[in-house]
Amino acid sequence: MKIIGIIPAYNEEKRIRATAEACLPFVDELIVIDDGSADNTFMAAKSIPRVYAIRHTINRGQGAALRTGTHAALHLTADIIVHIDADGQHDPSQIPDLTHVIKSNQADVVFGSRFLGQEPKGMPLSRRALLLAGRWFNTFAQGIPKTISDPQSGFRALNRKAAVQINFKQDRMAHASEILKLVTRSKLRWMEVPVTVTYTADSLNKGQKNTDALKIAWQLLLGIFTKS
């Protein structure tokens, strides 16, 4: 089965090689989507063997970059598609934990969860409280089952069928909740597996802020009324 990893990257010139090289042993090919970076992320990614570098001419957000990457992976005849962050928070050695579930035909979509026994490293207490609130928000406002333990997981794997079927529209941070909603309301089989996420000062500085929770809720609200 052909496994293709997708890494959306924005101004990750310095980190993209290390992240990509850490992922490559666990995938057949890798797609890096430079989401309109101001630095040389695209050229840095392009110089890595087995890596397809794709460039958004302007910044469109992580969800948009993942969607472009997913379409590219389908084009490249991927059987399994893995979404992974560029900032090094996810542990690439856990990619097989996700893909194994799909390979053994136990699920069509696998979500990595930070709250299934493997303690996140360096996660601030405020982030933990916010994610708990996000879980309740997802349940009441989005109709996502409360059994989903991680409301904003960005580490996930999909088989080809799921990647074709799940047509997510959110361009920015709200894509994670939208994907959860689409998957759990479909007839696709899904599963969560425990993953370890490591927060560093750098990733916390660049990654989502606590105040982004309000933006996500707003984007999801607009998404309900937006035809496209």
């Binding site: 989507i33 794709i54 460039r55 958004h56 948009a64 472009t68 590219a72 084009h75």
Partner: peptide, 8 residues
């Protein structure tokens, strides 16, 4: 933007 990116 996606269409343009995928064309390359």
């Amino acid at each position: 933007v996606e269409r343009e990116a995928l064309s390359h």
